[in-house]
Simulated scan of single mutants.
Amino acid sequence: MIAGNEHKIFENRMFVGKTENRNDPVLYSSSNLELTADQSENERVDLGAEVLDGVRLSESIVNFKEVKSFDDFNIVVNGLIIDSEFSKYLQMKYYELCCSQNSFLHENLLEGLNCKLVAGVIAETINIADAIRAAKLTTSHDSFLTWDKTLKSFEGLGMKVGFLCARLEQLMNLLTKSRRYKEAKLEQANANEEKQKLEEKLAEVTQTLSRLDREIGSFDQENADDLEALFQEVANAPW
């Protein structure tokens, strides 16, 4: 019953595609997580990996500390080994992620979740981890928000993805600083241009004032009185 409800949470969610050799990872829509886990044969061939035979029972519960190499690594959910849900490529990528945290990232997932759903969560976690590694300063902010929202929903199910969320937060902070720096540089350039225009205008006005001061200074008060008397004389002169 839990599996069915949890599965609905992820329907129509945006998921990231495989990001190798991309400057800006592209988002695509998925109707459900099972499509991510249950890949087509063509997709599996593209990854250049063979897929193991079907799901099988696990003989015992393995602590990650007992995993010494990839050969010892199995993805166990509800007592079932679900390695067959993944290509070798995805298994190796997940193994590397687990090694980085020295634990199975899915070990605290809610009990009773459908194996297909868990496989989809794991596969999407791998995709997002790859997307984070491939991210650039030119990557859209919406992409970061989508990855963060998806990871937070996985974390709510018990997936150990806090380290990916922390990396995303660091990158988003750096992205914000980078974009603010570019905005500040542009504002600075515009302000300097406006300042130059004002300085040129001030120099022009100052030059005009200096000219007028010289011109006015050439007339003393006596000359000014003489001009007024001369004006009246000319004005009143007979025709």
Rank of each mutant, 00 (worst) to 15 (best):
M1P: 09
K195E: 02
I61R: 07
E11D: 08
E169D: 15
N21D: 10
L168I: 14
G112K: 06
R22M: 15
E155A: 14
K149V: 06
V51Q: 07
V26Y: 07
T36E: 13
L230D: 04
F144R: 09
N63F: 04
K177W: 10
F163G: 08
K8F: 06
Q170P: 02
F64Q: 05
L90H: 08
Q91L: 12
E20F: 09
D226I: 13
L105A: 03
V118G: 01
G162E: 15
E124P: 00
Q101V: 10
I82T: 06
N21R: 15
E228R: 05
Q39D: 05
C98E: 01
V45T: 12
N42P: 01
F64C: 08
I9A: 15
S210V: 01
N127R: 10
E6H: 12
R211Q: 03
N127P: 01
R13N: 13
Q91M: 05
L151N: 05
E6Y: 06
S30Y: 11
S153P: 00
S210D: 15
T139F: 03
G79H: 02
D220A: 00
V26I: 12
A135D: 03
M1T: 06
L52T: 09
N173M: 15
L117P: 01
A37M: 10
R13G: 13
E124G: 02
L164Y: 14
T206G: 04
L202C: 07
Y28E: 09
G158L: 07
Q196V: 03
N223E: 01
I75K: 02
E66I: 04
I126E: 04
D24A: 02
D46H: 04
H141V: 13
I9H: 05
N102G: 05
R167N: 08
I128Y: 06
V67F: 11
E204L: 10
A131P: 12
S58T: 07
T125K: 01
V26F: 01
M1N: 11
K160E: 09
E200R: 12
K88L: 08
Y28L: 14
G112R: 06
G217K: 01
A129T: 01
E41M: 11
D130R: 13
F64T: 09
L35K: 15
K182N: 08
M92S: 09
A189V: 05
D130L: 12
G158R: 02
V51M: 06
D213F: 00
T208R: 09
R214Y: 10
Y181F: 10
